[in-house]
Amino acid sequence: MYSAHFTAETSSNGVRERDFTVGEVPGVLWSPASGSDGAPLVLMGHSGGLHKRAPGILARAHHYVTSYGFTVAAIDAPGHGDRPRNAEDAQWVAALLQARAAGEPIGPIIADFNSSLAERAVPEWQATLDALQALSEIGTEAPIGYGGMTLGTATGLLLTAIEPRITAAAFGGVFVYEALIEAAGRITIPIELLLPWDDEEIDRQSGLALFDAFASKEKTLHAHPGRHNQVPRFEIDNSARFFLRHLGRTVTSPA
């Protein structure tokens, strides 16, 4: 079993930020500078082509920490951020760029690429969760949520379908393929799904089919204008309030 090895730490504006590694997987842990014992832990999966400190991850992490007292963790997906890309992943990226430049459909390529990445990332997230729960400030009793977009959703669906420690999840903007529909059918916890209504690359109907496939008794669909990389800022707080309802804990009243 791996443990979390902390490599760097900074603190500003009420947020304590620590770099860590679990095995060869790098991550970041954000928590209230005033202390976070027993606070809910929200795992955040980044989008394809991005990394653990992508602007969207940072914005959510800081908002969740300062407004709600959550602890937030993110790791680099295989071949992303500080992790080297293998030859097969490089071929997928080249095929994706070529198809996009030629105006050809990219959905099938991304679905295959995301499928491979997500399957590799799931055990890494489980090892990370094991390591974080071994920290006294988190422990095994802290409620756990998961949030992600695109690749983060593909990974999160597969992870949440088999991981009973996750008790609420927020997803969105994903290229849907059969394995994700199947995973959604095994998810019964409360979920929130963001659906970019005007996405030119992700079919709207597939998002609706994914929402319908969730076996959760409590599920909410948030449709908004724009593409999957144009999530309205107010949705950041909507997702935070979703986790607050299902995970608990707040330190300051949001404005």
Score class of each variant (00 low, 15 high):
191 I>F: 04
38 G>P: 04
176 V>S: 07
79 G>E: 11
241 R>G: 01
125 W>H: 07
122 V>Y: 03
17 E>P: 01
42 V>T: 08
165 R>E: 01
112 D>V: 03
188 T>P: 00
119 E>H: 10
127 A>S: 14
250 T>M: 09
100 R>A: 15
4 A>G: 05
151 L>Q: 13
127 A>F: 04
157 L>G: 10
81 G>D: 06
190 P>Y: 07
208 L>N: 09
72 V>R: 01
251 V>W: 01
175 F>L: 09
78 P>Y: 06
133 Q>C: 11
97 L>C: 07
180 L>T: 04
249 R>V: 00
49 G>M: 09
74 A>G: 09
59 A>M: 09
133 Q>K: 07
105 P>N: 11
199 D>F: 10
170 A>E: 11
163 E>P: 10
175 F>K: 01
85 R>S: 14
140 T>E: 14
178 E>I: 04
60 R>A: 14
51 H>E: 12
203 D>V: 14
8 A>I: 01
106 I>H: 02
249 R>M: 00
174 V>L: 03
232 P>D: 07
221 L>Q: 11
58 L>F: 09
96 L>Y: 13
244 L>P: 00
77 A>C: 08
98 Q>D: 15
154 A>W: 04
84 P>H: 04
155 T>F: 03
220 T>M: 09
163 E>A: 11
32 P>W: 02
222 H>M: 08
205 Q>A: 13
194 L>P: 00
182 E>W: 00
199 D>L: 11
253 S>M: 06
1 M>P: 11
201 E>W: 09
105 P>L: 12
199 D>H: 12
4 A>P: 04
110 I>M: 14
133 Q>L: 01
238 N>V: 14
74 A>K: 06
2 Y>D: 09
217 K>H: 09
206 S>N: 09
74 A>T: 14
94 A>R: 15
104 E>V: 02
236 I>K: 05
248 G>P: 00
196 P>W: 05
170 A>R: 03
145 G>K: 00
98 Q>N: 14
216 S>N: 08
138 I>D: 00
164 P>H: 13
111 A>T: 10
89 D>E: 15
148 G>N: 05
216 S>D: 05
201 E>F: 10
76 D>H: 09
248 G>T: 02
220 T>I: 13
186 R>L: 08
27 G>F: 00
46 H>C: 12
80 H>S: 14
70 F>L: 09
69 G>N: 05
221 L>D: 03
143 P>Q: 11
244 L>G: 02
22 V>W: 00
196 P>I: 06
137 E>T: 12
169 A>E: 05
233 R>F: 07
179 A>E: 13
150 T>E: 12
224 H>P: 02
218 E>M: 09
95 A>P: 08
103 G>N: 10
10 T>S: 15
168 A>V: 04
166 I>T: 03
153 T>I: 12
103 G>I: 12
90 A>E: 15
130 D>V: 02
246 H>M: 05
181 I>V: 12
1 M>G: 12
196 P>F: 03
103 G>L: 10
192 E>C: 10
174 V>R: 01
173 G>H: 12
59 A>K: 15
3 S>P: 00
